[in-house]
Design a protein around this nucleic acid. Structure first.
Length: 726
DNA sequence: GCATCGGATTTTTTT
DNA sequence: AATCCGATGC
């Protein structure tokens, strides 16, 4: 059951706001998820709106799941029928239902970033364009931007020769998607916006159904999303959006925080509600965050207040380089865990670019401390996962040439490039898809056989037979069973698990995908594929982490942690060098830091490395401009060899080298061998192992240990908590 | 058809 | 430094 009395006045106002458009400006930690979920409960329970007539959209599955859980906790079965999901998943559902109005059938697959690049490369080759001159990711960026602005190829504006090229590629790319019975991420939104705009009957159907439309993170919507929301809410006009322009960090994805201003203009009777009370952070953290965001011009100043008290000062630390930065962070975590003032799961380490995680990971590994890295890409981008998913996609939608190309010779079955090319040529000449040719050959159809050499025809027919069998099984089978059948038929395990450590790891990833498939035993293959295509990085975060979390600042949005480290606060990293040209982009970098800082509940660390390794060379850095605006008296400078906060953060000048501890001096010096070869040791994470080798290096003992299950590992004795076994 | 080598290229952020 | 790509050789 839900209780209004637990909300503050503004939150209550938002939850119980009357009909019509409502805009809730919600600062960080102001309880916006709470407002959204209570609003839904209020609509259903108090106003007796049927859940069937309510649509709530978020940006990540995690946010959607969290809202769903909370609503179900309040209402139980009463909430059944509610439409709650991400923009992309919601659109996918609508498109499958309305496929008859589209040049697609309901089995369409969703192409991910890699597939898109593959497809564009093919288009470039088709059009005889130089792939070096016109890079696929760059072209895709332009296409994506156009799609987010609802620009179809025909309307692509031409100002330069490059535009001309992009337009031609865009056109052909779109044709190829259709031929593959596929859509990309942007299409999910674009097609729905197109349907709602162009097909009055479809628009009416949904606009009448959704009496109430609720939107989370509204500042991150792009034009396509804005337009489709407008259409969805066009009949009843009850649109309730929650957002914070200060947390707009997806400009590069087409998001436009000015949609918030547009909203007020398009819906003149909008009720505006401000949530400024912060329930998350200490005042010290909020003051520092406000100092950062306030330097953003053209913005209505907002006061963030908390009742949590002043709290500890924000800690500032200058590290010699990224490695010292990492060991400082780990030492701090270890210290606080030892002191029992925090649990490992309380910590998050945030950074601007994924590449920065590497040094941090290495430091964790060396210290023998477990951690969790956020990033769906890390898992779903893996070769073995893409292979297996491609098989499933192909079975579901044989027109998917990208998946076919991926698996036709994986594991190797003697179908090389030559055979593949002649398959493609023959298919196009016959006006059918390559997979159809395969299926024909597999079913002993004679009509296509003469197009290939005897050997090629036999191998192709063999694969066609397999594909045809799988297709026959697919409809009546849970995704897991089909997956197992494919793995067995192609003997994928012996292909990927080749006896090396890497092979072992790859096979374990496949098993992890298998585990995920078990959750879809009651659902069709389509649902499983959609889930795999639309996972977000955030979705990989466990609700209750028991170890420190490493994540990008972007992935951190919407989350909170007791202790937050923000690493790499140097010019070029944060703000990122790619943002120097555009003032708008520089402002977004500023907001990005603000988002990160406001994730912290109790303690915030800002870390600046004086040197950074780029392309193998260590170079001196300049401290982030955003640090300058934080008043020194609200920071605690923990830089070694410096008392208190010094304003002399020398821009560009090199520090005296002897003032900075090197790695070896940062921890206790070890001068004597303690783990001789042959001794058995216990490692906190990897368990028991045998010491193979050990040497003293840089006042530390470097130990090579063989672990039964893990293999050979090299650790630093000063960091890894090794225990000698008698 | 596959492995190996050398050279270019790399760093935003992600549904 | 590490990875990816293409060309070359087997």
């Amino acid at each position: 059951m839900y209780r209004l009395s637990e909300l503050n006045i503004q939150q209550q106002q938002a939850v119980t706001a009357g009909l019509g458009p409502v805009l809730v400006m919600a600062g960080p930690g102001s309880g916006k998820t709470r407002v959204l979920t209570q609003r839904i409960a209020h609509l259903i329970d108090t106003l007796a709106v049927s859940p069937y007539n309510i649509l709530a959209v978020t940006f990540t599955n995690k946010a959607a799941r969290e809202m769903e859980t909370r609503v179900v906790n309040m209402l139980g079965d009463q909430a059944r029928g509610l439409s709650l999901g991400t923009f992309h998943a919601t659109c996918a559902r609508i498109l499958r239902r309305e496929a008859e109005h589209l040049p697609l059938n309901a089995n369409f697959v969703i192409f991910d970033a890699d597939d898109q690049v593959c497809l564009v490369k093919r288009v470039l080759a088709d059009l005889d364009l130089d792939e070096k001159k016109f890079r696929a990711p760059g072209i895709l960026g332009s296409i994506s931007r156009a799609k987010n602005e609802l620009l179809v190829p025909e309307d692509y504006p031409l100002q330069t020769y490059r535009d001309e090229v992009v337009k031609r590629v865009y056109m052909r790319y779109q044709e190829m998607l259709t031929a593959n019975n596929a859509v990309d991420f942007d299409d999910l939104l674009l097609w729905v916006a197109w349907l709602l705009e162009g097909k009055a009957a479809v628009r009416d159907k949904y606009a009448r159904r959704f009496e109430h439309v609720l939107v989370d993170e509204f500042q991150d919507t792009n034009m396509a999303q804005y337009v489709l929301l407008k259409h969805l809410a066009s009949f009843h006009g009850n649109i309730f959006v929650v957002g914070d322009t200060d947390q707009s960090i997806y400009r590069w994805r087409g998001a436009d925080y000015r949609n918030v201003l547009r909203f007020e203009k398009d819906f003149p009777a909008t009720q505006l509600i401000l949530l400024e009370q912060n329930y998350r952070s200490t005042q010290a953290i909020l003051d520092a965050a406000m100092a950062v965001i306030d330097q953003n011009p053209q913005r209505t100043r907002k006061e963030l207040v908390t009742e949590r008290g002043a709290g500890a000062k924000v800690i500032y630390y200058e590290a010699y380089d990224e490695r010292v930065e990492a060991s400082f962070i780990i030492e701090e975590i270890a210290k606080r865990v030892r002191q029992k003032v925090a649990k490992p799961g309380d910590f998050a380490i945030m950074y601007r670019t994924n590449a920065q995680s590497r040094v941090l990971e290495e430091a964790f590994l060396q210290a023998g401390l477990p951690y969790k890295l956020v990033g769906a890409q890390r898992f779903y981008g893996r070769r073995e996962i893409k292979d297996v998913v491609a098989y499933l996609r192909l079975v579901h939608n044989p027109q998917d040439e990208i998946s076919l190309a991926r698996v036709i010779n994986v594991p190797p079955r003697k179908i090389g490039d030559k055979t593949w090319q002649s398959l493609l040529t023959h298919a196009h000449q016959s006006g059918i898809s390559p997979a159809d040719v395969l299926l024909h050959l597999g079913n002993d159809g004679a009509d296509h056989r003469q197009a290939f050499s005897g050997r090629a025809a036999r191998t192709l027919a063999g694969f066609g037979r397999l594909l045809s069998e799988w297709r026959g099984l697919a409809s009546g089978m849970p995704p897991l069973k089909l997956l197992d059948r494919i793995l067995e038929d192609v003997d994928y395990s012996s292909y990927i698990n080749d006896g090396t450590d890497e092979g072992q790891e790859r096979w374990e990833n496949v098993l992890e995908l298998r585990r995920l498939a078990t959750e879809f035993s009651e659902q069709p293959l389509e649902s499983f594929l959609e889930r795999v295509a639309l996972v977000s990085d955030q979705d990989t975060i466990e609700a209750t982490a028991s170890v420190p979390t490493l994540l990008t600042l972007h992935a951190a949005k919407g989350l909170e942690f007791p202790v937050v480290f923000i690493a790499g606060l140097d010019e070029g990293t944060l703000p990122h060098s790619r943002s120097f040209e555009e003032p708008e982009e520089m402002m977004e970098e500023c907001r990005l830091l603000y988002v990160g800082m406001t994730r912290a509940k109790d303690l915030l660390y800002l870390v600046y490395p004086l040197h950074r390794n780029t392309f193998g060379y260590s170079e001196p850095t300049i401290p982030s401009r955003f640090l300058e605006e934080i008043p020194p008296d609200i920071l605690e400078d923990r830089t070694v060899g410096r008392a208190g906060y010094s304003s002399g953060r020398s821009r560009g000048s090199l520090p005296a080298p002897d003032r900075w501890p090197n790695r070896a001096a940062a921890h206790a010096r070890i001068l004597e061998q303690r783990y001789p070869p042959g001794s058995r040791v216990v490692h906190p994470v990897w368990g028991e192992g045998l010491v193979l080798n050990s040497k003293i290096e840089d006042d530390d003992e470097v130990v090579d240990i063989f672990f039964e299950d893990i293999g050979l590992k090299r650790v630093a004795a000063s960091l890894a908590k090794l225990e000698l076994k008698a």
